[in-house]
């Protein structure tokens, strides 16, 4: 289940379209090497969820909240980045898994480093670098099976 992206613009569009896969309460673990376009993907996702302000990398703030305006019942996007997190205790302190129980979703860059904290029902989005510009964006995780139809639409 992978979607090709030929440019940063296409990665942003893939993120925007991914909003249609999400439901309130979802946690997305977003991975890919530095420069792969994780924040670009989230910027698109934020637009897809109806966030008005621009999403920036939360590398130094760890978690940013964005107010959403959409018909999907998702009112808040929590955008987190664990790149600078030094210990599991810091991840626990963020209590990310519990932020998203009501009317919100969380997208966690580098979330895979602490994956067991978030439970099994998560979506994993992985961005592979194919060339300077080209990327391949894959979706997996236990929750992907429940969202198979929406993910199939996102892939095409």
């Amino acid at each position: 289940m992978k979607r090709a992206s030929a440019s940063a613009t296409a990665t942003e569009a893939a993120g925007q379209a991914f909003a249609d896969v999400l439901a309130p309460g979802d946690v997305v673990l977003l991975s890919g090497p530095l420069g792969a376009g994780k924040t670009t993907f989230v910027r698109g996702l934020a637009r897809g969820l109806g966030v008005v302000e621009r999403a920036t990398s939360p590398t130094f703030t760890m978690v940013r909240q964005h107010r959403c305006h959409n018909a999907r019942g998702i009112e808040t996007l929590h955008h987190a980045d664990l790149y600078r997190v030094g210990s599991i205790d810091e991840v626990l302190d963020l209590a990310l898994g519990e932020l998203v129980e009501e009317q919100s979703v969380a997208v966690i860059e580098w979330g895979e480093i602490a994956a067991p904290i978030f439970g099994v029902d998560v979506l994993r989005v992985t961005i592979e670098v194919i060339s300077d510009e080209a990327r391949r964006i894959g979706v997996s995780g236990a929750l992907a099976a429940d969202r198979a139809a929406a993910i199939a639409r996102w892939l095409t």
Binding site: S87, I88, V91, L92, E112, I113, A115, P116, I117
Partner: peptide, 8 residues
């Protein structure tokens, strides 16, 4: 936590 620490 234990699994996560191993992962980390």
């Amino acid at each position: 936590e234990a699994d996560a620490v191993a992962n980390f």
